[in-house]
Design a protein around this nucleic acid. Structure first.
Length: 308
RNA sequence: GGCACCUUGACCGAGUGGUUAGGUAGCGGUCUGCAAAACCGUUUACAGCAGUUCGAAUCUGCUAGGUGCCU
């Protein structure tokens, strides 16, 4: 399988990733693969910031992948993303187009850039039942008996620990996948926006989304039959707007608390990207305050420099 | 004008002589399976000035600002 150079564009929410990716794609003849854990769901448009209009319309449109591929209410996952990404990537490469991975879900993007090896681990109901009554402490001990604990986020919650044990148990009885995730050489570009500007943009965009019908979008999803729990699970916009629509908080509280939550989310995204750099990924930061054309040209120049 | 009460860090809020809250926000971090998740760490105080005291955010006086009542 040929490995074409992959351009990855990442950045915190509201930094202009999509617009830059589209601008670069127009020059390169590229197609965009979304690296966003929430834009996969249909009907969740305003809250996830799909901005589909940014891709253009008609024959001028830049093709995109992994957006609107599952119904709202579905639980997407890292493993599924890797599989879906690979399929889209190979398809794009086979058609001699240029793949561009663009998104803000750090874990998802890192799983591609660093080639995480994951196996398809099905749910083990018998195992889950046997673990259901264990304390978090007991679960941690059980997990430790399978493998050295490679991180702490596995044992934050019983549900997460049980899933980690499920995976460890599966891996103990099955060989690693005979076809490991291919190493895909990628040039990673990050969009850097100064903190205060980032916050201002987030606030402005939240108000735009509210006036564009964010509340109505959530009401429509509830009317479709999605439950409050399902929507709350999706976090941020869906969590807070659902709380408002269901009468738990008033509008101004929702707007205020959601604004803070998005600011915190953007900060966590930046922390994750810095962590990626520490783990060995080179991120070429582009000044997000530059005009779009200048950002695009900076990316194109970078690609040239790397190629030579 | 008189009397009373109040003034704690970005915000909320406990503390009435010696140790010293806590929460929120902010900031930093963890990270190969729900990641828009979950979790961890953490800075800035006692309105100002003078005094009492071995020692004051805590007691006294004055000043500034605020709130209420009286006239």
């Amino acid at each position: 399988m040929p490995t074409a150079p992959l351009l990855t564009i990442l950045g915190p929410t509201a930094c202009g990733k999509t617009r830059l990716a589209v601008a670069v794609a127009r020059v390169l003849g590229g197609e965009i693969i979304s690296g966003d854990s929430r834009q996969v769901y249909r009907g969740m448009d305003i809250g996830t910031g799909k901005d589909l209009a940014d891709y253009g319309i008609g024959q001028e449109a830049v093709p995109y992948h992994l957006i609107d591929i599952h119904p709202a209410g579905y639980h997407y996952s890292l493993f599924a993303f890797q599989q879906d990404f690979l399929q889209a990537y190979q398809d794009i490469v086979a058609r001699r187009r240029h793949p561009i991975l663009c998104g803000g879900s750090g874990l998802y993007i890192e799983s591609i850039v660093r080639g995480y090896r994951l196996s398809p681990v099905p749910q083990n109901e018998a195992l889950r039942r046997s673990l259901a009554d264990k304390t978090l402490e007991e679960l941690t001990a059980i997990l430790a008996s399978y493998q050295s604990l490679h991180n702490t986020t596995d044992v934050d919650l019983p549900a997460r620990a049980i899933r980690a044990i499920e995976i460890a148990d599966y891996n103990a009885h099955h060989p690693l996948p005979d076809r490991p995730f291919p190493e895909i050489a990628s040039i990673v570009v990050g969009i850097d926006v100064p903190r205060e500007l980032r916050r201002a943009r987030i606030t402005q965009r939240l108000d735009e989304r509210l006036s564009e019908g964010l509340v109505e979008e959530v009401e429509a999803l509830l009317a479709q039959g999605l439950t409050e729990e399902q929507l709350t699970y999706y976090g941020l916009e869906y969590k807070y707007v659902t709380a408002h629509v269901c009468g738990h908080i008033d509008f101004s509280t929702m707007r205020h608390d959601l604004e803070i939550a998005i600011h915190q989310f953007a900060k966590r995204q930046m922390t994750y990207f810095r962590g990626m750099e520490r783990r060995g990924t080179t991120i070429h930061w582009i000044d997000g305050t530059l005009p779009l054309d200048a950002q695009r040209d900076a990316v194109l120049q970078l690609l040239k420099d790397v190629a030579s």
